[in-house]
Design a protein around this nucleic acid. Structure first.
Length: 577
RNA sequence: CGGGGUGUGGCGAAGUUUGGUAUCGCGCAUGGUUCGGGACCAUGAGGCCGUGGGUUCAAGUCCCACCACUCCGACCA
């Protein structure tokens, strides 16, 4: 490919609405173009990167006996009615009608389609286990797309679905897929991706993992224990708080006209967090019923845990002056029975708390939950925090990081096969529901993630395994016959060797040529110039600046090939087999 | 869904307070001079100032409505 004729253009100025580097570089580098919020077209460089990522995924899925299939983008709503998700899912599911007014949806995930495809096939236990996967466009009408390709509405995703006749078999396959994912990320050049335990959410099932690339711009929060290696998404991590038992004190009503927050209370009474009790109010989305969560003053509510406990959707409720609860003065003692009170385990052993009195501008001191509030049950509703206690090894060593979720895997169980009546006859002639697993990777997000962690101030530094081209020839002063003659020859020679090469023979200044090359991020660059030709040599440099050498023109092609082999080997070395 | 912000040639911005000829840089085209990190000179093309209404002799600028995009938060199967 000649750069001269490649569609898309590269430019210097950072687009005004880019807040993360991968987004800015991919727009500036002519990788993609904005079409609508969360919707992009891809220019050749990005398309090539995605194709390579897809190929890696394909090879690894095939290696664990995956069978590639293709589901439709547009599905009849009736299929989603079968699983019950047509009504469970919110507005992320794009709903529409076809010309006959039949309700249709745009596929945002394909569990239903997968079950639909194989439910006649899978009628006998002898067919199991098997896994089907596709690489295809998904559409999720996200409320808030952001950060370029990190969170889009339309995106390409590899989604895989496995079917088993026993939980043990699922677990064994899950483990195989886990390893395949590690190989995929390593081959894509981001072997540093970690796996974390996650909350399965409304997907159903029990066990699930997310694959996270740690970076400050990530949308997920992850708890890591450096002592024992425990890693979990913050929303799934158990929060453990151990309080030294405190003695009980006399209950006293105190006027606190100006104290509404925990910090106000601590200042007024000169106490630590172990004396404070925070109240956070939520409402059930369906009924509007209020729920108050009480927890120790220094902690925050983990809404995922709360949602899972309640079993339905909730959202934060704002208390106004005419609400039944007085904002800033809500407490467990003498609380109205019109709301549900829940208690976090962080309040255990605390015998003397300062709590809101449920009277505007008043607090009680000396509240004992066991003595005054009927000794309520306590559950884990809090977010684990920096320095918190590790649920695995018990040391107070948890560190909190941000990460991009580049893949996830779930043990689904029989949620979909039951809902959609997929059954097989087992050895004993009994009818049973197959057990499912599902496994996803976002292709574009993975490309953007690599860019995010592998770049410098001038552009991306693509790993050779997913780079849009392997070699970039910069012919400085291609108007000089000797330069042109040699560069043309090299270009043809490399292409004959099936090396992917982008050739820049434009009559532009060296600055422009190098800047464009930096933005394209091709790992190996060959510089042909009058200066080099005079010495019968060329320069071979790598985008990451680790290699910078002059070689004789006659040996250039073989040196390039050796370098490609070396860079590829470096990436493959880190891969477990 | 809650709260902010922004819409002016392809890109980045000024102009809006105080209404009066559409402005700058980059890019693009043509010619010339340059030539190893986004060169220089000259000439030129390109904009119903997000949309619709209103006020006014006159609206990018003031008023009303709408739309789009974006940031923070919520949701994200």
């Amino acid at each position: 490919m000649k750069l001269e004729k490649m569609v898309g253009e590269r430019f210097k100025e950072k687009p005004s609405d880019c807040v993360v580097e991968s987004h800015s570089l991919m727009v500036r580098g002519g990788y993609m173009k904005f079409v609508a919020s969360g919707i992009f077209s891809q220019f050749p460089p990005l398309k090539r990167i995605c194709r390579k990522i897809e190929q890696i995924i394909r090879e690894e899925m095939d290696a664990i006996d995956g069978q590639e299939v293709l589901f439709p983008v547009v599905l009849p709503s009736s299929l989603w009615e079968e699983s019950g998700r047509y009504h469970d899912v919110g507005s992320e599911l794009m709903r529409m009608q076809d010309r006959n007014k039949t309700p249709m949806v745009l596929g945002m995930t394909h569990e239903e389609a997968a079950v639909h495809l194989v439910r006649e096939y899978g009628q006998s236990y002898t067919k199991y286990p098997f896994m089907i996967y596709q690489i295809q466009t998904k559409f999720r009408d996200e409320g808030r797309p952001r950060a370029g390709l990190i969170r889009t509405r339309e995106f390409t995703m590899k989604d895989a679905y496995s079917f088993h006749t026993s939980q043990e078999d699922l677990e064994e396959y899950y483990e195989k897929c886990f390893r395949a994912y590690e190989r995929i990320f390593a081959r894509a050049g981001i072997g540093e991706v970690i796996s974390v335990a996650s909350d399965p959410g409304m997907m159903g099932g029990s066990v699930s993992h997310e694959f996270m690339l740690l970076t400050p711009i990530g949308e997920d929060t992850i708890a890591i224990c450096p002592e024992c290696g425990y890693k979990a998404n913050q929303e799934a991590a158990e929060s453990i708080v151990i309080n030294k038992p405190t003695g009980e004190e006399e209950l006293k009503l105190v006027s606190t006209p100006n104290e509404a927050t925990i910090d106000d209370i601590r200042k007024l009474f000169g106490v630590g967090y172990e004396k404070t009790c925070k109240a956070v109010v939520y409402k059930k989305n369906k009924t509007g019923d209020l729920i108050v969560v009480f927890l120790r003053g220094d902690l925050e509510v983990n809404e995922t845990k709360l949602r899972n406990y309640i079993g339905e959707d909730i959202s934060p409720a704002t208390m106004t002056d005419d609400s039944i609860l007085p904002a800033g003065s809500i407490g467990p003692y003498k609380l109205t029975d019109k709301v549900t009170a829940l208690f976090d385990s962080s309040l255990k052993n605390l015998g003397s708390l300062i709590c809101g009195a449920n009277i505007k501008g008043h607090h009680y001191t000396g509240v004992s939950l066991s003595r005054d509030c009927g000794n309520p049950d306590m559950h884990d509703f809090a977010k684990i925090k920096e320095g918190g206690i590790c649920p695995e090894c018990g040391k107070a060593a948890i560190s909190i990081s941000r990460g991009i979720e580049v893949g996830n895997i779930f043990q689904l169980g029989t949620k979909y096969t039951e809902a959609m009546s997929m059954q097989y006859i087992d050895q004993d002639g009994e009818l049973k529901y197959p057990i499912m697993g599902c496994y996803g990777i976002g292709v574009g997000r993975l490309a953007a993630s690599v860019c995010e962690v592998s770049r410098d101030e001038y552009g991306p530094i693509w790993p050779i395994t997913i780079a849009p081209w392997q070699v970039h020839i910069c012919a400085l002063r291609a108007d000089e016959p000797q330069v042109r003659e040699y560069a043309d020859k090299l270009y043809n020679e490399l292409q004959r060797e099936k090396i992917e090469v982008i050739y820049d023979d434009r009559s532009v200044s060296a600055g422009v040529m190098f800047s464009d090359a930096d933005l394209l991020g091709v790992p190996i660059r060959v510089i042909v110039s009058p200066r080099n030709i005079k010495e019968s040599c060329v320069e071979i440099v790598t985008r990451d600046k680790r290699v910078n050498m002059k070689v004789e023109t006659d040996h250039c092609a073989e040196q390039v090939k050796a370098l490609i082999a070396k860079l590829t080997a470096e990436i493959e070395e880190g891969i477990s087999t």
